[in-house]
Design a protein around this nucleic acid. Structure first.
Lengths: 241, 241
DNA sequence: ATTTTAAGCGTTTAAAATACGTTTTTTATT
DNA sequence: AATAAAAAACGTATTTTAAACGCTTAAAAT
């Protein structure tokens, strides 16, 4: 088969692929969760050769008739049982020698999920575990780079888009939200200024319930109002934490 | 050939590729230039079938033994004659149906270059032309999306990293720099505040020459001091325009 | 009852962004 | 030769936002 509608000047060359070689396309997922005041990553330990015992990100090859992001969603569902997960493309890793076994480029994606929502048995049956960033073991191939880059993207994006809420339960307290941002930005924030800031954004709805798990006094629960957020967006508002 | 060191849970499946089908990997380049006060894009018109007469970005397939970014650099050199161009990965386009001819994913890159540096004859011999964003014709496939996304990335990145200088000559005036940022951000900036801001960054060196092309009075030329910038970076400084 | 702890509300100070006035240098015009 | 025009260059005032920090409140533990 000859490419018929190549969009490029070089489309008519014939030297891209040696006949006996294949270029594979995969996707790897950097799955973030937030629990117990810490940002965590879901990684898994291979239990079959080759590389048995090595920790790595969760990934898959992209099927011939499948969108690349669809492949990432398929993997997420297989591992966590969840279909509606926040997913964003991170970066594509295309070094010719990145995988010693064969030529494969990987389109990394990062996902944000609520740890408590997932199917723990399913996750465990795949040999997957949650690790904090500090405890993260060595990962296979260039997966360490993938984590670094995804974390970088998450940090940048979290500041200007309300994606942090994807990591929290529907109802959360201001101190919980602060802990989340502290773990994303890796620095402490002033509780009084943080509260003032997030409430000034006008997208949090205060509920008539308190959460007592974090302190004696308990803190009011809030929820993120995404309709309000959409409205505000349309009238030229910009979110920033 | 069976993948030997697949990093994923699904590596042992056998259903990724039908035997008679192939998944191609390409790269397309969004090449930005700045001239005459306007941000421009280098695009080209196909002169052979299929799609003869259709404008598109410049791209190529990725060779089996070539890094993906290396492929992008190869294309840039073929088209412009330049080897040292600022190049950044933009995004990967992986919809199964994005190219009706065959399955191909494209890793888009954006490049920033000084329009006057390039080999005009070479560019012309490839049927490539510079267009302002306003005059841009319809582009093939999803190339319009690629332009939109790259422009978006450029805008975000230009604010916090000194990449704008890649689009200007070595020596430039403050008003020229302002025009560049105005065309990137698509909004007017106050000349007095702009000057104050960029000079406060301490990375511009004033030269003893004036450029008289832009006004009667002429404006002093400056150059970007990248050594100084690196130094400042290491002592926790952050650039922002 | 008193202490302790985090939640919640407030004020002050410092820094940055924005708005806008004035002077300077040169060319073009009268 | 004087004057007008235009952009460059420098400066100041005002507004907005960020950072620093004090105080009160609610509820559990002593």
């Amino acid at each position: 088969m000859t490419p018929s509608s190549a969009s490029t000047a070089q489309a008519s060359n014939n030297d891209f692929y040696a006949a006996h070689d294949k270029l594979y396309v995969a996707t790897d997922c950097i799955i973030f969760g937030f629990d117990d005041g810490d940002l965590k990553l879901l990684i898994f330990k291979r239990r079959v050769e080759p590389d048995s015992g090595i920790w790595s990100l969760i990934g898959s090859f992209v099927k011939i008739d499948e969108d690349v992001d669809e492949a990432a969603r398929r993997v997420l569902k297989e591992i966590t049982g969840l279909e509606e997960i926040y997913l964003e493309q991170s970066k594509t890793y295309g070094k010719a020698e990145r995988d010693p076994g064969y030529r494969c480029i990987s389109v990394a994606h990062y996902a944000l999920m609520r740890i408590n929502d997932h199917d723990r048995e399913l996750t465990q049956s795949h040999g997957a575990f949650w690790y904090t960033l500090q405890e993260l073991p060595q990962l296979a191939l260039d997966h360490q780079d993938m984590v670094r880059d995804a974390l970088d993207k998450l940090r940048r994006r979290a500041r200007y888009q309300p994606i942090g809420f994807e990591l929290l339960p529907e109802k959360f307290t201001i101190p919980q939200l602060q802990k989340l941002y502290e773990s994303i930005y890796q620095r402490e924030l002033d509780p009084r200024n943080f509260r003032k800031k997030v409430l000034s954004l006008k997208v949090l709805v205060k509920l008539d319930e308190k959460d007592k798990s974090g302190s004696k006094r308990g803190a009011y629960l809030y929820r993120f109002d995404s309709e309000k957020y959409q409205e505000l967006l349309e009238s030229g508002y910009n979110f920033e934490i």
